[in-house]
């Protein structure tokens, strides 16, 4: 567990915690976040990350029983998202930000990918 913690820096762990909270539909407690991260992290590590993110104003929290449930704070709803979408809709801009993890696929590519995913699942 310690090795795992050392392998991920503070920032990386906080980014993962934040990403997990964004992926969730509701506010999550530290225990639920631990479950959502799905790897051998210590409970205290997750609590520390959540507290730090809350202190930075990135997360809001509500008491649930004896613990807190956290959710991401969304500021100026959708504004940055809309502007970024415009950027990504431009061919030149998309190339500069290397937005290729989400890449354009041909129909053939799609078929191949689904096959590869299916094969990966069988193993």
């Amino acid at each position: 567990m310690d090795a795992e913690r050392q392998r991920r820096g503070h920032g990386e762990l906080e980014a993962e915690v934040l990403a997990a909270l964004w992926a969730a539909d509701e506010a999550l407690t530290a225990n639920q976040v631990l479950g959502a991260l799905g790897s051998g992290l210590a409970y205290t590590t997750v609590v520390t990350a959540l507290s730090r993110l809350h202190a930075k104003g990135v997360l809001s929290r509500v008491p649930v029983g004896r613990a807190y449930a956290y959710r991401p704070v969304t500021d100026e709803p959708g504004m940055a998202a809309r502007r970024m979408r415009q950027v990504l809709e431009s061919e030149v801009d998309r190339q500069v930000v290397l937005a290729r993890f989400v890449s354009e696929l041909s129909e053939h590519d799609e078929q191949v990918l689904r096959q590869l995913l299916g094969r990966a699942d069988e193993h």
């Binding site: 920032g11 906080e14 980014a15 934040l18 990403a19 964004w22 993110l53 930075k56 990135v58 991401p72 969304t74 709803p77 959708g78 940055a80 998202a81 970024m84 979408r85």
Partner: peptide
């Protein structure tokens, strides 16, 4: 937040 920016989209 650190180097990560999540956009509600």
């Amino acid at each position: 937040h650190g180097d990560l920016q999540v956009l509600a989209e």
